[in-house]
Design a protein around this nucleic acid. Structure first.
Lengths: 112, 112
DNA sequence: TACCAATATGTTTATAATAACATAACGACA
DNA sequence: TGTCGTTATGTTATTATAAACATATTGGTA
């Protein structure tokens, strides 16, 4: 997606349901939580505060009316977090949509 | 673009160059100016103030470093506005990109 | 010449989104 | 039992964006 008649085409996709939005930011955050097993680590990687990451999750859970993250507090590691099944499902759907659109944009470019 | 595994896929496209962005809002505004021959009429149609429309145009012209709108003030009609060639070109490119992506999204959906 | 509709801007207010700061609780382990 | 890293929240400050308000200018036409 480098050039489009001299301009760079931008594209942003998201999943929506009843006003609740699942976009790139939430996708990125949840992916990192899944990989690292920690909200704090995920936030740190993204250069965002734990407070901000936690807040984003809470707001999203309220909007989607589902749990996205299972957490545990205390213990030797201090605690941790993992994704719920619903969250993994949303991640998969989003990845699918995004990759599809990106791929098609490239096709569109070369077909010109 | 009605359904994607129970979710509604959202998509937003834009043209970019050196940080300057041409998106749906500017497209809509300029289209209406082209059709009505007036910034005030275009703004009114969109339920936005003349001040806001004018400001958006000015900021965009500064970012893109080109003139988007030719204006004339005074006279029997009070004045008016029309698009520059560069603006019409941007409109065409944007329309093309947007329609292309929308079409491909539909294809993507039915191919599933 | 007075009027009118549209362009042209400066200034202020309100709203929202984001960031920053601060503090508490938890629980395995040394 | 004290430490440490993580989750959990409330509160405040800062920024960014948008909306609202106000006023001046222009130039055909009646």
């Amino acid at each position: 997606m480098t050039d489009f008649f001299g301009f760079k085409p931008g594209c942003k996709v998201w999943l929506e349901k009843d006003g609740a939005v699942f976009g790139e930011g939430l996708y990125d955050l949840l992916s990192r939580i899944e990989r690292t097993g920690s909200i704090a680590a995920a936030a740190s990687e993204m250069g965002m505060s734990y407070r901000a990451a936690w807040g984003k999750i809470k707001v999203s859970e309220k909007k989607w009316q589902i749990r996205l993250v299972n957490t545990r507090v205390g213990g030797d590691t201090g605690g941790g977090a993992s994704l719920t099944g619903e969250a993994r499902m949303l991640l998969a759907r989003f990845r699918e949509l995004r990759e599809g659109v990106n791929g098609l944009l490239i096709v569109h470019k070369f077909e010109k």
